[in-house]
Design a binder for these strands. Structure first.
Length: 333
DNA sequence: CCAAGGACGCATCAACCCCA
DNA sequence: TGGGGTTGATGCGTCCTTGG
């Protein structure tokens, strides 16, 4: 739905003020008046021009392949609906031969940070912002959770103290069950910036236990001691105790990157985005020889996706496999 | 294997808040 | 009261599962 509404931006003139429901009606009426007849789409030349236009962004430059795909998807759905309503006789898109832009499906190995780089990045996070307001210090644990436990950002943002087992020594555990995807105030049921829903691709109420390495447990314990938790028990929160917006931690991350990385690495894709910490975590585990089934379980995705997505990052696995086979054969020598 | 579909993330600028 | 610190809104981009 959000995607569909987004595409109205191509039709509706950008409003100077917030769009109230009555304005939507006005906009739809305007679109009706300003549009060409639907049947014009049956002319392949017109259809081709429409497809061509969907390749561009509002500023006129070519959009990313995934974005092009989404724009086209929305059009295909609209056309299907028109056919269903008897407003079009045939499928105008089928008449136009059109190649969909190729998209990259694998993780770029250059984004993966090694443990030393990850540690210095996390350390740098604590130096971001003033010490008193602690813009960075408050978020060290958030990023640590993405790196040491492979959490997705929206999972890390939602972690609460009651869901964690944080022993003084050794491994801990967190039970993930809700996430806080950022949707925008206009689109949530509650009218707040974030929605509350179940884990990605799973029914509401489903949970995923995630083991927490000792280094992370220590980090989170310290965070709770220093900053406490939000009213609802969340470990990480903004200055006013609210849910962290992606723009908030993204800014901190970029400042930390500038502090931690030498100029030569700063311009590379190395850990460019917070999500790359998760990529780093998963590829590190796989290369350490952890069973892919176990990695997939901890990460919360399927083995198939895991292995195809991280194919380019798996340079150490063949060696490990060879060693294991050799050891097994030696045993029976 | 690949396209579809939906959910989520990131960049950037505007707006707001807080404190000296 | 002004300016730095911080969060919010929005358009574009990515991740990942499903189903043919």
């Amino acid at each position: 739905m959000r995607q569909a509404l987004r595409n109205w931006a191509f039709v509706v003139p950008r409003p100077e003020q917030r769009t109230a429901p009555s304005d939507v009606r006005l906009a739809l009426r305007w679109a009706e008046r300003a549009s060409r007849p639907l049947t014009d789409l049956m002319d392949p030349a017109v259809m081709r021009a429409v497809l061509q236009a969907l390749r561009l962004k509002q500023d006129g430059t070519v959009a990313a392949a995934e974005t092009q795909r989404h724009q086209r998807m929305t059009l295909v759905n609209a056309v299907r609906y028109a056919i269903e309503q008897g407003m079009l006789r045939g499928d105008p898109i089928a008449n136009v031969s059109w190649r969909i832009a190729k998209t990259v499906k694998q993780v770029d190995p250059r984004v993966v940070a090694n443990p030393a780089q990850a540690r210095s990045l996390l350390c740098a996070v604590s130096y971001v912002g003033s010490h008193r307001r602690a813009r960075g210090r408050r978020l060290v644990g958030l990023f640590a959770g993405m790196y040491y436990a492979g959490l997705r950002p929206e999972e890390a943002v939602a972690v609460t103290l009651p869901d964690c087992v944080l022993p003084a020594e050794g491994w801990g555990r967190a039970i993930l069950h809700i996430t806080r995807p950022q949707a925008g105030k206009k689109w949530t049921d509650t009218g707040r910036l974030h929605d509350e829903c179940g884990l990605k691709g799973r029914p509401l109420g489903d949970t995923r236990p995630v083991p927490l390495p000792p280094e992370l447990v220590a980090q989170w314990r310290e965070s709770v001691l220093t900053f406490g938790t939000a009213d609802d028990g969340r470990l990480f929160f903004n200055e006013r105790g609210g849910i962290l917006a992606s723009s908030t931690y993204d800014r901190v991350w970029h400042e930390a990157r500038e502090l931690a990385l030498p100029p030569g690495l700063l311009s590379t894709p190395l850990a460019a985005r917070p999500y790359d910490l998760r990529h780093s975590a998963l590829s590190t585990w796989l290369n350490a020889g952890v069973d892919p089934t176990e990695v997939a379980e901890r990460a919360g995705n399927s083995v198939e996706v895991l292995m195809t997505k991280y194919a380019k990052c798996l340079y150490g696995r063949a060696t490990i496999a060879n060693q294991r086979i050799e050891a097994l054969l030696d045993e029976y020598d």
